[in-house]
Structures are given as structure tokens and as C-alpha cells.
Simulated scan of single mutants.
Amino acid sequence: MMKIVRASLVAVGISWMLVSVNASAQDQKKPFVTDLYTADPSAHVWQDGRLYVYASHDIAPPKGCDLMDQYHVFSTDDMVHWTDHGEILRASQVKWGRPEGGFMWAPDCAYKNGTYYFYFPHPSGTEWNKTWKIGVATSKYPAKDFEVQGYIEGLESMIDPCVFVDDDGQAYFYYGGGGTCAAGKLKDNMMEIDGELKTMEGLEDFHEATWVHKYKGVYYLSYSDNHDENNDKEGVKGDNRMRYATSKSPLGPWKYQGIYMQPTDSYTNHGSIVEYKGKWYAFYHNSSLSNHDWLRSICVDQLFYNKDGTIKMVR
């Protein structure tokens, strides 16, 4: 009788755990922002213990990606319930920006010595594709009171800034586009390049969306590729895939490792990878709410590593 009771209790316990796991998986909504269109999620965990996501904003009705504006910040402490901290910056607040506004593309944020640094690409002229600058706004808070301080001088006209702060406090700046990814050290003021930028070598089919994270002492550089379903010989539907490479140094050389995410239902993809409370997550965007390439929504899935440090395919 005792064996039967114990077996029943074990069965009930297992059933309860399965229900809890399924409920947790269902609660972690994809997309997790549903009241406005968002893209290009840049995820960070700050000293207050919350995970923050800095996202660009697609404005309806869309006009390609021209009308993107009004960056928002979202945060969570359980990966289930999210707080929208509201808008932190828009094109009209950028004095050196193009008069027509818009074109506030994929951002990033970094923290150093009590200050949050928000990096964003924005053109300075009407001829937007030739006048990109990487602007910098600062605040003492992670999700409010950002003020534009200027832009990083001496850069080429490229997009998608990423700033990685290593364990020793040294900050590294990455950006790119059009098949080129460049990177270098940042000075302590977080607004100037220290020395010269160099092209990142070893990245196969790089397009844009650079992101750098560190796992067990190894540096990972992830990015979107140039995949086009119209030219795909393997029959893979969709466009940008997410690839990655690894290195023993934050500035390479990089060893290409493969694809970690196949295309979503959106023409683009842009991701970030971060650890939170002992688990790793891959952030990205899709078009599942709108069924429109330029009205996107940010999503998250758990990310897993193989024993050799390679990343398992995120599904």
C-alpha cells in the first residue's frame, strides 16, 4: 500500500511539474510586446537585477523602414511580465539629425561608472544612406531622462551600433552594414574611439546586426546574413538568418560557427543574446502580429549551448 501511495505521489508530483513547465512556456509570450510594433531588441541586465530591452519602433502605416522613430524600453524580472517604460528618444530631439526625421534604426545601450549610454544610428542629412552617424544619449537611469550628447566622430556611414563592456571594464564598439563589420576600443568617456577601428575577419556572409556576448571565457559575435529566399538553393523560406562566430579576443580574429536561427516570417531579423538568472535567451523580431515585413514585433526564446560551446538552433 505504501508503495502504491508513494508511486501515486510521485506521479502527481511529475504531473504538477509538467503543468508548471507548460504554463511557464505559455506565459512567456512571443511576441511579448503587443500594443505597438517594435524591432531590433537589445537586451541587457543591469545592477538593479532587471532585464531591460531597448527596441526600435515601427510606425503604421509603414513606408519601408523610413518611418522608424521613438525608441522604447521594456523590462522584466521574471521573463513573463513586462513593463513598458515608455519612449526615451525620438528623431526630433536629435539636433544634428535629418530635418525629415524617421530613420531611428537598431540601438544599443551600455553602462559604465554610474551612467547609461544609449547608442543609436541616425542620418544627418536628407540623403540618409550616405549620412549615417552613431548618436549617443546619456542618463543616470536605465529607462528615462536620456539626453543626446552628440555622436561618435570619425566613423563611416554605417549602422547597428553594439557596445560590449568586458569583465575588466574596457568597452568595445562595433557597427556595420553592407557586408562590413568594424570594431575597436572606446575611450573611458564612451563617446570616442581609442585608436583605429579594424574590420572583423572570419565572418561568413555578414550583413548587419552585430551583437557580442561572452560565454565561459569565449567571445561570441552574432549577426544577420544576406539570405534571400528567392535565391535559396536549399528551399529555406524567409530572409535573414542569424549566424555567429567565436574568438578568444573581443576583436577577433573570428572563427565562423554556423547558423543559430533560421528566418522568421519577417524580411529582416536582428538579435541579441543575454544571460538572466542562470538561463540564456535569444531575442529577435518577427512579423507574426501584423503579417507585414515592416511592422515587426520583438520576441524571445531560451537559448542553449552544446558541451563544446556551440549554440543549439533556436526554434
Rank of each mutant, 00 (worst) to 15 (best):
H213P: 06
K214S: 02
K214I: 00
Y215P: 00
Y215S: 00
Y215C: 00
Y215H: 04
G217T: 05
V218D: 06
V218L: 11
V218M: 13
Y219G: 07
Y220K: 03
Y220R: 01
Y220L: 02
L221G: 08
S222T: 14
S224W: 04
S224I: 05
D225M: 01
D225Q: 01
D225T: 00
D225Y: 00
N226F: 09
H227C: 12
D228G: 09
D228Y: 14
D228V: 06
E229P: 09
N230S: 14
N231P: 08
N231H: 15
D232S: 10
K233D: 12
K233Q: 14
K233N: 11
K233A: 14
K233I: 08
E234I: 05
E234M: 07
G235A: 10
G235N: 08
G235M: 14
V236T: 13
V236C: 06
K237I: 12
K237L: 14
G238T: 04
G238H: 03
D239T: 07
D239W: 15
D239P: 03
D239I: 02
N240I: 00
N240K: 09
M242L: 11
R243T: 08
R243E: 12
A245S: 11
S247N: 11
S247E: 12
K248T: 15
K248C: 09
K248H: 10
S249D: 14
L251Q: 09
L251V: 10
G252L: 04
G252S: 04
G252F: 04
G252T: 05
G252I: 05
W254I: 10
K255E: 15
K255P: 03
K255V: 10
K255G: 07
K255H: 09
K255Q: 13
K255D: 15
Y256L: 06
Q257C: 15
Q257R: 15
G258S: 04
G258N: 04
M261T: 03
Q262R: 10
P263C: 03
P263I: 03
T264G: 11
T264E: 11
T264V: 12
D265R: 04
D265C: 05
S266E: 01
Y267K: 14
Y267D: 07
T268G: 09
T268V: 10
T268R: 11
N269E: 03
H270I: 07
H270S: 09
S272G: 13
I273C: 12
I273G: 05
I273T: 13
V274Y: 08
V274G: 08
Y276H: 10
K277A: 02
K277I: 02
K279D: 13
W280D: 01
W280R: 01
Y281N: 07
A282S: 10
A282E: 06
F283V: 05
F283W: 08
Y284K: 01
H285I: 03
H285A: 02
N286K: 05
N286S: 12
S287I: 03
S288V: 09
S288M: 04
L289G: 06
L289V: 07
L289W: 05
L289I: 07
S290P: 02
S290K: 02
H292V: 07
